[in-house]
Nucleic acid binder design. Structure first.
Lengths: 104, 104
DNA sequence: ATAATAGGCAACCAAATGGTTGCATGTCAA
DNA sequence: TTGACATGCAACCATTTGGTTGCCTATTAT
């Protein structure tokens, strides 16, 4: 879980996920196109995404195909984001309530 | 948005959010209790959470009260996580489909 | 066979990160 | 008013991070 959060912390990596979301199964070379980074930098980013299980790869001859795995993202939504949804309504009102309470 | 992702990337900071989720409006001192970190380290983490607008503070005399702001978390759920939900069903099947296509 | 193509590996670098210590400031209570 | 308490500020440190360059290997096409 921590690896996923860390992987998502970088904008370049999120951009790579976006690209794969737009078109799945791209090669390293394709993913590099138009990016202001060297291929090696992209390789490293993809390695981190792979380690976090956000991307699955598949060698096909001399090319490496990259596939998005949306499961960890979904898990963060389920296990983490949802936990804070409930509080949303009460948060601001609670702030005001406590503010008044403390100022008695 | 980037600031939020980066803020959430650290386990200590997520733990602090958890603590505030359990009990809102804690002081710095309270948030430090039982943590294997100096107060100053916690201060820095809270500063990052505050900069990402995940935490709102309120001075009350010599204490500083910390309040969780769940809005940015919710936004990540809405604007980012949800985008990848749709792909979930097709991802693995597409992988297999492309696998077969490429091997022709 | 050989050249071009796709990718991998390793060393290196600057900057950011997460943490520390030491001291200063503001506020409350006796 | 004076000490204790809650927090702030700044310098410093080691490690991680995001990136580079240079070279090596494997596969494909001519």
């Amino acid at each position: 879980m921590d690896e996923v959060f860390r992987a998502l912390a970088d904008a370049s990596r999120r951009a790579l996920l976006d690209r794969l979301h737009a078109r799945n199964g791209q090669t390293l070379g394709e993913l590099c196109d138009g990016l202001a980074m060297t291929r090696q930098a992209v390789t490293k980013h993809l390695g981190i995404l792979e380690a976090a299980n956000l991307v699955t790869t598949l060698r096909h001859g001399r090319e490496k195909l990259h596939y998005l795995n949306p499961v960890p993202i979904h898990q963060i939504g389920e296990r983490w984001i949802k936990k804070f949804e409930r509080g949303k309504l009460t948060a601001l009102s609670e702030l005001k309530r406590q503010l008044e309470k403390r100022d008695e």
